[in-house]
Design a protein around this nucleic acid. Structure first.
Length: 480
RNA sequence: GGCGGCAUAGCCAAGUGGUAAGGCAGAGGACUGCAAAUCCUUUAUCCCCCGGUUCGAAUCCGGGUGCCGCCUCCA
């Protein structure tokens, strides 16, 4: 079976066919960097990380573009999010952007999220956005009003196609004031006129101002991926108006189609409602990482399907931690067996035979079916159970164990990233162990058990560690 | 009000026509100086409710109930 993805444009599963055989262009809406990221962000970006990794696993050459929004994303009040952050922390807007962009990258690195190939910033692509807007003005689908430029939804009948809304219904349900110089309340800003005191502003054909929120994604994805491209991803909560408007802009300006497949991720819920900044019901990724292994957090996210909402509870987090440990323990047990017998790791998944091959197929088929990570993870848990049982037998079949080892590495770790890293962090462990050993030796000396105390010192000496007894206690050092 | 989605064991969660994956928690057992890990066994006669279609439905259709998302703040 080929790769099948659920496409929000058609609301159905479709066989994936890239524009250029063997290559995939993917764009995912990135964060607005004005505060630390939370687990809700982790769900979306870990989900698309698996999409990215699995596409590469299948042999596609992927170009993954994910923007950093650092201008133009407004709050209800009309205040720019970046300005909000700048005012809060008494920083330059670009200092806020730097701080939280790096915070975000650090979080993603810690979560084992493979970096996008390009992370373009909106503020670095104002020229491209202006050109795109000008193109729409020239074609008559956008109009200038008091130094701002608006997209005219009336000039684009297909508006609402992605989110399944129609313009009339939207108009009927518009919440109050149409405001400013909009011809239609649904028209959205492409370019906003800036007051002199507005901190982030650029010159444009329509005066000084700044780009609207939706335009950056259209401009930057078109620039780096060309049109049409294959996959557009993001959170389902942005389907309207953001994603809808992206499509409208691209179609209106270029008429070449935009993204062929729309993959949108469900939100992370707490007590039934979305984890979000505004509700304050969030756990930052940094806080979560202080308590749980990255693999555990990934497992938490990936035990649910990416399209579905996921209920976050502390019990679910605990379950993920324990589950990830279980996978790690099985992987370690297999690795120890391989090491003890000097078995070289199997590098070629395609060459697997028997049970491991069946397990591989079940995992891959699950992932090919719209990235069904819960099912693939379930299969790996069964594999862990199976290999644990095998290794308790007198003579485990070597090829089978090797095959499972390969699966844990290639699927469990490389594609899903749900198996904790092998090996312990030994940093600082030696001093702590020496402290323990010398404390025990001191007790022996106090009890006048000198033979055993001396034996500890001698045994340590043969290992290059000398121990000296001083009035204030023992000291040790590595001699070599 | 409009549009969309969800409802599966104590918790998280797959499964979209053929008779309920997986994880956590729980129970019994093996092993163990104790503990942990590991292993074995076990835990939903049933998938929100009521009708219908079908030889057969958690899965399809109709109605109802509850919850959620979006409707220019949000990944």
């Amino acid at each position: 079976m080929g790769l099948v993805v659920y496409n929000y444009l058609t609301r159905s599963k479709e066989t994936f066919k890239p524009v250029t055989p063997g290559r995939v262009g993917m764009y995912v809406c990135g964060p607005t960097v004005y505060d630390h990221a939370h687990l809700g962000h982790a769900k979306v970006y870990v989900s698309f990380d698996v999409v990215n990794r699995f596409l590469r696993f299948l042999g596609y050459r992927v170009r993954y573009v994910q923007n950093i929004t650092d201008v133009g994303h407004l709050l209800d009040s009309g205040e720019d999010r970046i300005h909000r952050g700048a005012a809060r922390e008494k920083l330059e807007p670009m200092e806020v952007v730097e701080k939280y962009a790096w915070s975000y990258f650090d979080d993603m690195d810690a979560l084992g999220v493979r970096r996008p190939d390009i992370s373009p910033r909106a503020s670095g692509h104002v020229t491209e956005q202006i050109e795109l807007i000008q193109c729409m003005v020239d074609k008559g689908v956008a109009y200038v009003s008091d130094g701002s430029v608006y997209f005219s939804v009336d000039a684009y009948p297909a508006y609402g196609r992605l989110s399944r809304r129609n313009i009339e219904e939207l108009q009927a349900g518009t919440r109050v004031e149409a405001l400013e110089g909009k011809r239609n309340p649904l028209d959205f800003a492409l370019w906003k006129h800036a007051q002199p005191e507005h901190l982030m502003q650029w010159p444009s054909p329509w005066g000084r101002g700044y780009p609207g929120w939706h335009i950056e994604c259209t401009a930057m994805s078109a620039k780096y991926l060309g049109l049409p491209y294959d996959i557009h991803g993001g959170g389902l909560d942005n389907i309207f108006p953001h994603n809808e408007s992206e499509i409208a802009q691209a179609d209106a300006a270029f008429g070449e189609g935009y993204a062929n497949y729309w993959l949108l991720a469900g939100s992370l819920n707490v007590d039934g409602v979305k984890m979000s900044k505004s509700l304050g019901n969030f756990v930052t990724i940094k806080d979560a990482l202080a308590k749980a292994d990255p693999a555990a957090l990934r497992l938490l996210v990936l035990t649910g399907h990416y399209r579905s909402p996921l209920a976050f509870t502390n019990d679910a987090l605990e379950a993920a931690r324990t589950g990830a440990r279980r996978l790690g323990a099985a992987r370690d047990k297999v690795a120890a067996y391989m090491s003890a017998r000097g078995l070289p790791p199997e590098e070629d998944l395609a060459s697997l035979q028997g049970e491991p091959a069946e397990t591989r197929d079940r995992c891959v088929e699950s992932l090919k079916d719209d990235f069904n990570t819960p099912q693939a993870a379930g299969v790996l848990f069964e594999a862990a159970h199976r290999v644990n049982t095998l290794l308790d037998e007198p003579s485990p079949p070597e090829e089978t164990v090797r095959g499972f080892d390969a699966l844990f590495r290639e699927v469990g770790d490389r594609v899903l990233g749900i198996i904790p890293k092998a090996g312990l962090d030994l940093t600082g462990l030696t001093p702590r162990l020496m402290e323990l050993l010398l404390a025990l030796r001191t007790e022996l000396r106090t009890a006048r058990n000198y033979p055993l105390a001396d034996r500890i010192r001698e045994e340590l000496a043969t290992r290059g560690i000398s121990v000296e007894d001083h009035p204030d206690g023992p000291r040790w050092r590595m001699d070599r």
